[in-house]
Measured scan of single mutants.
Amino acid sequence: MSYSVTLTGPGPWGFRLQGGKDFNMPLTISRITPGSKAAQSQLSQGDLVVAIDGVNTDTMTHLEAQNKIKSASYNLSLTLQKS
């Protein structure tokens, strides 16, 4: 079951990613910084990142996902799936 979260910026957003197409692993939330915008939302460590700002992550490399997140200036919309 997927869910959506919109973090209001600017960054830093307070989470780290792992995985990506180049690692043959789905993009997942690997760490959440305590007290951060991510920590105050529904994000959980281990959640799968399905889309970033409406763009499906199935074919994204780790770097492409990082760049997509960094390019979000004020709002960052994520679609996630609980692990």
Rank of each mutant, 00 (worst) to 15 (best):
M1R: 05
S2E: 06
Y3I: 08
Y3C: 08
Y3R: 05
Y3G: 03
Y3V: 07
S4E: 11
S4L: 07
S4P: 05
V5D: 02
V5W: 02
V5T: 04
V5R: 03
T6W: 06
T6P: 02
T6H: 09
L7N: 02
L7Y: 05
L7M: 10
T8A: 15
T8I: 10
G9Q: 05
G9D: 03
G9V: 05
P10L: 07
P10T: 13
P10V: 07
P10G: 13
G11I: 04
G11T: 06
G11Y: 07
G11M: 07
G11P: 07
G11R: 11
G11E: 09
G11K: 10
P12G: 05
P12Y: 04
P12M: 04
W13V: 05
W13I: 04
W13T: 03
G14C: 01
F15E: 00
F15C: 04
F15D: 02
R16L: 10
R16W: 12
R16Q: 09
L17Y: 03
L17A: 04
L17E: 01
L17K: 00
Q18P: 00
Q18I: 07
Q18R: 11
G19C: 02
G19P: 03
G19E: 03
G19R: 03
G19D: 02
G20R: 03
G20S: 02
G20W: 01
G20Y: 02
G20N: 03
G20K: 02
G20H: 02
K21W: 07
D22Y: 04
D22K: 04
D22S: 05
F23L: 14
F23Q: 13
N24V: 05
N24A: 07
N24T: 08
P26N: 03
P26G: 05
L27I: 10
L27Y: 03
T28V: 09
T28P: 00
I29H: 00
I29T: 02
I29R: 00
I29E: 00
S30C: 08
S30L: 09
S30G: 13
S30D: 09
R31E: 15
R31K: 15
I32T: 04
T33A: 09
T33P: 03
T33D: 11
T33G: 05
P34F: 08
P34R: 10
P34K: 12
P34S: 08
G35Y: 06
G35H: 07
G35L: 06
G35R: 08
G35A: 07
S36T: 14
S36C: 04
S36N: 03
K37R: 07
K37G: 06
K37S: 09
A38P: 01
A38E: 03
A39Y: 08
A39S: 13
Q40M: 13
Q42R: 11
Q42A: 12
Q42K: 13
L43G: 02
L43A: 06
L43M: 15
L43N: 00
L43S: 02
S44P: 03
S44N: 08
S44K: 13
S44W: 05
S44Y: 06
S44G: 09
Q45G: 06
Q45F: 08
G46F: 04
G46I: 00
G46A: 04
G46Y: 05
G46Q: 04
G46R: 04
D47I: 02
L48V: 13
L48D: 05
V49P: 00
V49S: 00
V49E: 00
V50P: 02
V50M: 13
V50C: 10
A51T: 13
A51F: 05
A51I: 05
A51Y: 07
A51S: 09
I52K: 00
I52V: 06
I52T: 02
I52W: 01
I52Q: 01
I52S: 01
D53G: 08
D53S: 10
G54S: 06
G54E: 07
G54C: 05
G54T: 04
V55R: 09
V55E: 14
V55Y: 13
V55H: 11
V55I: 12
N56I: 11
N56A: 14
N56R: 10
T57C: 09
T57K: 00
T57R: 00
T57A: 13
T57E: 00
T57M: 03
D58M: 09
D58E: 14
D58T: 14
D58W: 07
D58P: 03
T59V: 12
M60D: 04
M60S: 02
T61W: 03
T61C: 06
T61L: 04
T61S: 13
H62I: 14
L63F: 09
L63P: 07
L63Y: 12
L63E: 13
E64M: 07
E64F: 05
E64G: 06
E64V: 06
E64I: 05
A65E: 01
Q66Y: 09
Q66W: 11
Q66P: 01
Q66T: 14
N67E: 14
N67G: 10
N67A: 15
K68H: 09
K68L: 14
K68N: 07
I69R: 01
I69Y: 03
K70L: 13
K70N: 13
K70Q: 11
K70W: 08
K70T: 12
S71T: 15
S71K: 14
A72P: 09
S73K: 15
S73A: 14
S73G: 15
S73V: 14
S73T: 14
S73Y: 12
Y74W: 13
Y74Q: 15
N75R: 14
N75V: 11
N75T: 15
L76N: 01
L76D: 01
L76S: 03
L76H: 03
L76P: 02
S77K: 15
S77E: 13
S77W: 07
L78N: 01
L78M: 12
L78K: 01
T79M: 12
T79I: 12
T79W: 07
L80P: 00
L80G: 04
L80R: 01
L80S: 02
Q81I: 12
Q81C: 08
Q81W: 07
Q81N: 12
Q81Y: 07
Q81M: 14
K82P: 15
K82Q: 15
